[in-house]
Simulated assay, not measured.
Amino acid sequence: MVRCWKRSENCLEEVQCTDGGPDATPRSHFSHKAFWFSLSALLLVIVALGLAGHLGLSQLHSQSLQIVRITASDQHGALINQSAVVDQQNDLVTLVVTSSTNQTSTVLFDVRHGLICYKPVDQDSCFLRTMEQPDYDNVNSLLRGSTHKQSQFQLSGNETERQMEFLGVLEASQVNASSLGEPLQTLCKNRSVHWTRRADGPGKQRLVYFCIDICFPSNICVSVCFYYLPE
Results as ranks from 00 to 15, higher is better:
R3A: 10
W5V: 09
W5K: 10
K6T: 07
K6V: 10
K6C: 06
R7F: 06
S8M: 11
E9S: 08
C11Y: 10
V15M: 09
Q16M: 05
G20R: 04
G20M: 06
G20N: 04
G20C: 12
P26V: 05
F30G: 05
F30P: 01
K33P: 02
V45W: 04
A48T: 10
L49V: 09
G56I: 00
S58R: 10
S58F: 07
H61E: 13
S64M: 10
S64Y: 12
T71S: 08
D74W: 01
D74N: 04
Q75P: 00
H76L: 13
S83R: 13
S83P: 01
Q89R: 13
V97I: 05
V111N: 00
L115N: 03
C117A: 15
P120L: 04
D122F: 02
Q123S: 15
Q123A: 15
Q123F: 01
D124P: 06
D124H: 08
P134R: 03
N140G: 07
S141H: 03
T147G: 06
T147S: 09
Q152D: 09
Q152I: 08
Q152P: 03
E159C: 02
R162E: 06
F166L: 00
E171A: 06
E182S: 10
L184N: 05
T186E: 08
K189M: 02
R191T: 01
R191P: 01
R191I: 01
S192N: 14
W195T: 13
G203K: 14
K204Y: 06
Y209K: 13
D213A: 01
C215E: 09
C215A: 10
C215K: 11
S218N: 15
S218K: 15
N219A: 07
Y227D: 03
L229M: 10
